[in-house]
Design a protein around this nucleic acid. Structure first.
Lengths: 342, 342
DNA sequence: CTGAAAGCGCTTACAG
DNA sequence: CTGAAAGCGCTTACAG
């Protein structure tokens, strides 16, 4: 069908020849910048269709200095990233939003020290227009390096210690934690435990803060024995639940800071002879697909990842355009299901 | 620390000046092609370190005609891709292997018709060196377009109808299916049902073929009533199990062609009052993380995704280098767990 | 509105 | 072993 399938791809010059104009004019209609006569536009458009021309992005990048690509950078230990269904939702949303803008998504995984090294070099080299940072930990030296390299960056979740220099979009972790615990209180729970996320991540810290604040507002003393720490993962959730059962066997409600951890409490509670929600109510966080596959299904705080991915991309293009860093917070809401019914 | 953090990145000319050689020489040591005197190498290496130089990949691509990037192309309806943990394992393995070779991974999702259109244009434009195709369906018009565009491509799983023109790496689906069913037979099951994958995918067809062949080898007639179709997903697995229970209530063994579908049979069987493995044995396929999170855990066929991702990348670089297409099959093995113990 | 020309940062024959 | 030079395919002031 298309003539040039054979050897080399048609270039802007082929199109120009075909259209009977100079190749500068072709470039103009391609970019829609300056004024071009209607006839020129038509003949060029036709010529493009006839030749099957598509621009060489590398040549374009070289000329413009923009790469047209964005890095989706993962820095978590790998098992977490891929265990958590939220990650997939985020990736999909970002891919969609980026593609809508004609931007290319480059996936980078930086877990080992060597990979991190390479990553900094690569990103610092200005080979992408910006980076989307997924679940950054506050102690990570990568953060400082990226900031120093002055590369546009938007994180998923505020970055502790970089609140002003790194743009971010997060869900309302604090309010989510509060809502979860207030729901448990309203249901009559009085000995409410929590399983936290990592305390070097914004979400980990603020979901816990939501828990303590809800308790304090209700006039309940916060007892450290009711707080167990996890790292978002299933295993850590199961371990934390066992720990809690040993320490505070009278527990009647659990707020786990992720659905993965909440889901993992279920078999542990069952083995311990506790009925959910009869003896112990459980509330998760995320409203990931996990929440509806457990038995019972999970009451959880909805973390609107689709919206977050959308806003991340929008914000990143703003930052690339030179606007000042910003933190965006997307509201959360409670989804009531079997593990703690109304 | 590095001088040039300020305005523009150092180029090959900056390095040349710093090293006191021509920039052609810098390029030579960068690419390690032709001979360069040891002293030149040293001074250039030093100059690179001092200037913090990193090559501009776009300029390089423009000059060489190679893009240095590979597309990881997803064509499945989105929910499947992201529901299946195997996908994540594959993505991670590929990312690793690609990064080891200095190749960039571009993620593309082509689900809607418009996205597919854009994808073909983009890939056909020669903007990536090759594409890694994930779970292609045989009827997909994308396949022919990609082949016609003569773009190097390696699929995960053989592509029905394109066995000779599209390289692929698959696990031994047929043998895996056989092993699963032989295991059930050895355990004493005689009324064995199967839940298949899509019949327009190699894995779907050959896992089923393994089932029928194992039955026939054992002298058992294959009864269509014992065959239910799924699409790899959880929901389809649950639906298929319900269907089977209605149609052949005497079923005493189930081979589900994916862990997701196998996992979904568990609650359905439980609700129907069947004990697993007491009344009905269940065997899955994939040995994904799902297999160890169910209750009971899943006996399943191990699908070595890490190995597959590795081979996919290796094969793709071969194809890019001009070697003829190839099909690679990686062996499977049985992993025995709670849903059908030894 | 539209050519001609320079330049983006590299690679790679071509001559030494 | 190493310069000088052309060229990869585009964009974008600069002159008309």
């Amino acid at each position: 069908m298309i003539p040039n399938v054979s050897r080399k791809r048609p270039t802007i010059r082929d199109v120009a020849r075909e259209a009977g104009v100079s190749y500068a004019t072709v470039s103009r209609v391609l970019n829609g910048r300056d004024w071009v006569s209607p006839e020129a536009v038509r003949s060029v458009t036709d010529a493009i269709a006839r030749t099957g021309y598509t621009a060489n992005p590398h040549a374009r990048s070289l000329a413009t200095g923009k790469s047209g690509s964005i890095a989706f950078l993962l820095t978590e230990p790998q098992h977490l990233l891929f265990e958590d269904p939220n990650f997939a939702v985020l990736l999909r949303g970002v891919a969609q939003a980026l593609s809508d803008q004609g931007l290319t998504l480059i996936l980078m995984i930086a877990s080992t020290p060597e990979e991190r090294e390479r990553t900094v070099t690569y990103l610092g080299g200005g080979h992408v227009d910006g980076v989307l940072l997924v679940s950054p930990h506050s102690g990570d030296p990568l953060l400082g390096q990226l900031v120093r390299a002055e590369i546009p960056i938007v994180a998923c979740g505020q970055v502790l210690g970089f609140e002003d220099s790194i743009s971010s979009v997060s869900c309302d972790d604090w309010m989510g934690g509060r809502m979860a615990v207030e729901h448990l209180l309203a249901a009559g729970c009085r000995r409410i435990a929590t399983i936290t996320g990592p305390q070097d991540q914004f979400g980990g810290v603020f979901r816990l803060r939501g828990y303590t604040d809800a308790l304090l507002s209700a006039g309940i003393t916060v007892d450290q024995a009711y707080i167990a720490h996890g790292d978002w993962s299933r295993e850590s959730g199961a371990a934390a639940m066992r720990e809690l059962l040993a320490r505070v066997p009278d527990v009647d409600g659990v707020f786990a800071a992720s659905d993965a951890m909440a889901a993992a409490t279920l078999p542990v509670l069952r083995e311990a002879g506790r009925d959910v929600p009869g003896d112990v109510r459980v509330v998760g966080f995320d409203d990931s697909v996990l929440a509806v596959t457990t038995e019972p299904t999970l009451t959880t705080v909805r973390n609107p990842m689709e919206r977050i991915s959308e806003e991340m991309v929008r914000l990143l293009t703003d930052v690339i355009a030179g606007r000042t860093p910003l933190s965006i917070t997307v509201p959360t809401s409670l989804v009531v299901r079997g593990s703690s019914p109304a």
